[in-house]
Nucleic acid binder design. Structure first.
Length: 649
RNA sequence: GGGCGGGUAGCCUAGUACGGAUAGGGCGCAGGCCCCCUAAGCCUGUGGUCGCGAGUUCAAAUCUCGCCCCGCCCGCCA
């Protein structure tokens, strides 16, 4: 017998037993919830119900009396997986028939193998998961890296759940920053990148920002002397200027040739600012020369991104250019459509969207989790110069996404909560409330550095590449130290698996709503609660299986009497429930948590009990089956996390 | 000022949707374990006003209200 969800089977039996018993006891109200939960300790069984406390309130009877009465009504012989039911202190505790339950769990894992745990949903949807979408202006920083890891893990969860999932990258090529780089790139004579292209363009971005900012601030300062500006204001400008001058010194030191050439070229322009603005305008308008230029720069950066992300096992099904929506009239169509609603008005020369009025008219405050008296800020749709803003274009993009999918998940930092809300309100205004309701803003918290603030414009950041490189290097040292007998080739391979796994795990492991402070310690953790720990557990299981002779004697699961054996089986049986919860409620970190807990059980088992040498044979075989099951489940969990499961390390 | 998110031992963290039994881990610190399938491991110990205060309840880390601290947002940036 196999089950896609062994613990679920047991849970169903307990539920049925409870309902049955309740029906037999007179004068009891039918409770809406059975309150079946795993008890704090195995001594209380595998599942326990606290519903007698609720019933006690309603009937005026004592909880422990009710519990005893109900427990007595349950005839365990009617159920295959329940061996006994005990009433303790008002709780009703259910004990699993362990040999049967172990046979069901371990048998199912063996049978389902790479499918075990991935219970498919009855009604699958088509999904678009938009994630990463890092602006192509500099290398991906460690601060941004949480996004692709979370997004990719969510996509893996949903796919395994049976949904049809497309992973989209939204390329933010419209906007001032792209114009800044294009300007610098042009001034340098469209140089061929030295080194990794995203790093190279990142340098141009910082250098160009730096040079133009210094010029701008200097001019501003000159004006202040003419116009009698308060000293406070002057000091503020001076402070900004000083900061940029520091950056300039850094840049000149690190990239003297490039920086000097750029400075020289830019100084030839009377007003660099207006050239940049003109580039931005021309790009959005789709003027061919600018199109070619900016696309060329973006493509270079994306090439670098693809390389970085592929190291983490992260890939995309679609690369969506923001500019395409401007050029194809989809953005202007959205603006026209919005103009026809009562929610758009002109103020001076700009077009504003009255998000507050939509929220009120459609009675959405409660739905969006807002107070009635909260006023949603309005959103500017079009600038005075006729160019559009990010969220405006995002409305067009969202409409496009919903032509391709029933549900859309935007993996976007929580700092954009307001913008995402305004986006939804715009969809309502366009009579696409259905889209808004199928749009999930998966908001995650920031990754920060301890002590100082990352600034991508100023070039002060730790790149994702650096972190991956360092982790791989550290892993190599560890592998060499711990497994000196491995071949050089194996060492290289394992250190990559382990190092990159450690990085990915450290970003996936924490509840996404919590802020993360980046420390090397967190990422370079190769001990407990880390990818290497899970990988090591997996490798240990593989090692036993490798060394064991093929099982010939029938396993006897009744011989698995040690508490740790039972706890390991129990943990294995719960993987499907954990997976369902993680997929349906978008909780990628709970898979990491689960895999870590399972590894804990397995390592305790490993240290305590022999497998191959265990006597009698049916016990040895039973343990071998258990080890095999741990191997399978750990590997499956690691696949969801996008982490490789090595057989040796 | 308003909104959103977070606050669990010295540090990091699970649990909060749907209230249940002694709040589960890890790092650190102190000590112990390779006769034995990989010591990236195992065992023992140490450490908690679950931000604070009320309330609801037989029962609150979890629900309600008020307050405090941290972060982010409230742009003709993205």
């Amino acid at each position: 017998m196999t089950s896609t969800n062994p613990f679920g089977e047991f849970r169903n039996e307990c539920g049925a037993a409870l309902r049955d018993a309740l029906a037999k006891v007179k004068h009891l109200p039918q409770p809406s919830l059975l309150s079946l939960n795993p008890p704090p300790s195995v001594e209380f069984g595998e599942l326990a119900s606290s519903l007698c406390f609720d019933l006690a309130k309603q009937t005026g009877k004592k909880p422990f009396e009710l519990a005893e009465k109900i427990a007595k009504m349950i005839d365990v012989s009617e159920y295959s997986l329940i061996v006994s039911v005990k009433a303790v202190g008002g709780y009703i505790n259910f004990y699993a028939d362990f040999p049967k339950f172990a046979a069901l769990t371990l048998g199912s894992i063996k049978e389902l193998d790479e499918k075990y745990g991935f219970v498919e949903i009855e009604k699958p949807y088509t999904f678009i998961v938009e994630h990463t979408s890092v602006n192509p202006i500099h290398p991906i920083t460690i601060g941004q890296a949480r996004n692709p890891v979370l997004g990719d893990t969510i996509a893996r969860l949903l796919r395994a759940r049976g949904h049809s999932v497309k992973r989209h990258y939204y390329i933010d090529d419209v906007g001032r920053q792209s114009a800044v780089i294009a300007y610098g790139y042009l001034k340098l004579g469209k140089p061929k990148p030295k080194g990794k292209p995203d790093h190279f363009i990142g340098i141009i971005y910082t250098a160009t920002s730096c040079i133009t900012e210094i010029q701008r601030l200097k001019k501003q300062l000159e004006n202040t002397t003419k116009t009698n500006t308060p000293t406070e204001e002057k000091q503020k400008i001076q402070k900004q200027l000083d900061e940029w001058i520091d950056v300039a010194a850094e840049m000149e030191d690190k990239h003297p040739e490039l920086f000097r050439k750029l400075r020289e070229e830019i100084s030839k322009d009377e007003d660099p600012e207006s050239v940049i603005n003109e580039l931005n305008r021309a790009y959005e308008a789709g003027e061919p020369k600018t199109k070619t230029l900016i696309r060329e720069v973006c493509e270079l950066v994306l090439e670098g991104f693809k390389e970085s992300l592929s190291r983490m096992g992260i890939f995309y099904d679609s690369w969506d250019w923001e500019s395409s929506f401007s050029w194809s009239n989809e953005v202007s169509n959205v603006i026209e459509a919005l103009k026809k609603t009562p929610y758009v008005y002109s103020e001076k020369d700009v077009l504003e969207f009255d998000a507050e009025k939509v929220a009120k008219d459609f009675e959405l405050k409660k739905k969006l989790g807002l107070r009635d008296d909260y006023k949603v800020p309005s959103l500017t749709l079009v600038r005075a110069d006729g160019t559009t803003l990010y969220t405006t274009r995002d409305v067009a993009y969202s409409l496009w996404k919903f032509k391709k999918a029933q549900k859309v998940i935007n993996v976007v930092g929580m700092e954009q909560t307001l913008a995402q809300m305004q986006l939804k309100l715009a969809l309502y205004a366009l009579k696409h409330g259905d889209y808004a309701e199928n749009l999930t803003h998966f908001a995650y918290n920031l990754v920060t550095l301890p002590g100082y603030k990352m600034s991508s414009r100023k070039g002060h950041y730790i790149t994702f590449d650096e972190v991956m490189d360092e982790a791989t290097k550290r892993a190599y040292e560890e592998v060499s130290k711990r497994s000196p007998d491995l071949s050089e080739d194996e060492k290289q391979k394992i250190s990559k698996t382990v190092g990159l796994g450690a990085v990915r795990y450290s970003l996936a492991e924490v509840d996404p709503t919590k802020p993360v402070v980046f420390t090397w310690d967190r990422v370079l953790n190769f001990e407990k609660n880390s990818a290497p720990y899970l990988q090591y557990s997996h490798a240990r299981a593989c090692s036993i299986l490798r060394k064991a002779a093929k099982p010939t004697i029938k396993p006897n699961f009744a011989l698995l009497v040690d508490p740790i054996e039972r706890e390991t089986v129990l943990s294995l049986s719960r993987f499907p429930e954990t997976f369902i919860d993680a997929a349906d409620n978008l909780k990628p970190h709970s898979i990491a948590d689960y895999a870590n807990a399972l590894s804990d059980k397995f390592n305790t088992f490993y240290a305590k009990l022999p497998v191959i040498k265990a006597k009698p044979e049916p016990l040895s075989t039973a343990r071998l089956v258990l080890v095999e099951a741990v191997r399978v489940v750990l590997r499956n969990a690691l696949i969801i996390l996008g982490i490789e499961a090595p057989e040796k390390m």
